[in-house]
Computed example of a mutant assay.
Amino acid sequence: MTTTTCRTELPSAVSPAGRRLLVISPVRDEAAYLQATIDSMVAQTVRPTVWLIVDDGSADATPDIAAQAAARHDWIRLHRRADRGAREVGGGVIQAFNEGLAQFNLNEFDYICKLDGDLEFGPWCIEGLVEKFEADPELGTTSGKCFDKTSSGCVPLRTNDDFSLGACKFYRVTCFRQIGGFVPEVMWDGIDCHRCRMLGWKARSFPDEHLRVYEQRPMGSSHKSILHGRFRWGYGQYFMGTHPLYALAICAYRTCERPWIVGG
């Protein structure tokens, strides 16, 4: 497992794209992490037209943190949902996302992004991803690469180049409409990329350093534990119709990921 220094190197030149971007962040009990995400967003060289934080029934200070940000920045908004009683990853996240999306007319935007509330990223991230779209009209969805922060550095999370990250997933609105949005199930962030390619669009995640996003907690640990997250991944593969032998091969390949052995 390789590690790298937790930093974001800026590109030599980036020009403003002038595009309209809607960002929606479904969050629940993210008080320990949300402020860092807000700080990263406020520091962007190109900010979204609107960033809607959808609080999905948090029991901690998450909505207060979001409300304070909305009071300081007119492009940040907060929408609060009733408490469903427990965190529901996968389908629940997309239900919260869709409730936020229903408040907008997508015709008013060029790009849309689903963003987690526990990330950190450098100031050129949004501008750089919009430039990827501008450079390739066939690009339907995109992201940077994701890293887990650890005591020994930042560990890159495996993401195929032909997939975009669920944690920070950008879409061209035209493509997003054609795939019918996100499926409210576990593995929604894989299904959408398959659907994207089936319709002739490209799905990409780019390794450029200034596009990286950093998880403030281990990926898959937001609900119960990392091990529970691995079982959830297995159900998602079943839901997508993945062949059992292929799933077993992935499990064997990922036994070298943290937590060791059970990571697969």
Rank of each mutant, 00 (worst) to 15 (best):
F133V: 04
S151I: 02
G18M: 03
F121H: 07
R47P: 01
T150G: 06
G241Q: 02
I76L: 11
Q216C: 04
S15N: 06
Y253Q: 15
C175Y: 07
R80D: 01
R80W: 02
R47H: 09
F163Q: 11
R177W: 03
P123G: 01
A32F: 02
A82T: 08
V27M: 06
A59I: 07
Y111M: 01
G241L: 07
R19S: 02
E131H: 09
G57D: 08
L165Y: 04
V173L: 01
C146L: 14
G92M: 03
Q216A: 12
C154E: 09
K149S: 03
G220A: 13
S25N: 10
I261A: 10
Q35R: 13
S164I: 05
Y235V: 08
K132L: 14
A135F: 00
G181L: 01
D192T: 03
T141V: 11
I226H: 12
E120C: 05
L157K: 12
P11V: 09
F170V: 10
S58G: 05
A70F: 03
F231E: 11
S40P: 15
T37I: 10
E257Q: 14
V54W: 03
L21I: 13
A43Q: 14
R177P: 02
P26D: 09
R177F: 02
E131M: 07
V155C: 09
I126H: 14
G140C: 04
A32V: 02
E99P: 00
D64G: 13
G92N: 08
T242A: 09
Q68K: 15
C251G: 06
R19M: 01
W124D: 13
Q178D: 15
R195P: 05
R212E: 04
L22C: 01
G166I: 09
D83G: 00
K202S: 14
K114G: 07
I226V: 15
R20L: 01
H73L: 07
V27W: 02
L199D: 11
P123Q: 06
D148K: 00
L10V: 04
V23L: 11
L157T: 08
Y111G: 00
R7L: 06
Y171S: 04
E127H: 01
G57S: 09
W75V: 05
R28M: 10
A67M: 08
A67G: 07
P244S: 07
E138V: 02
T5L: 06
I38S: 07
F104S: 00
A59K: 10
W233D: 11
L157P: 01
E185P: 00
D60V: 04
R47N: 13
F182L: 15
G166V: 12
T45I: 13
P137R: 14
D192I: 14
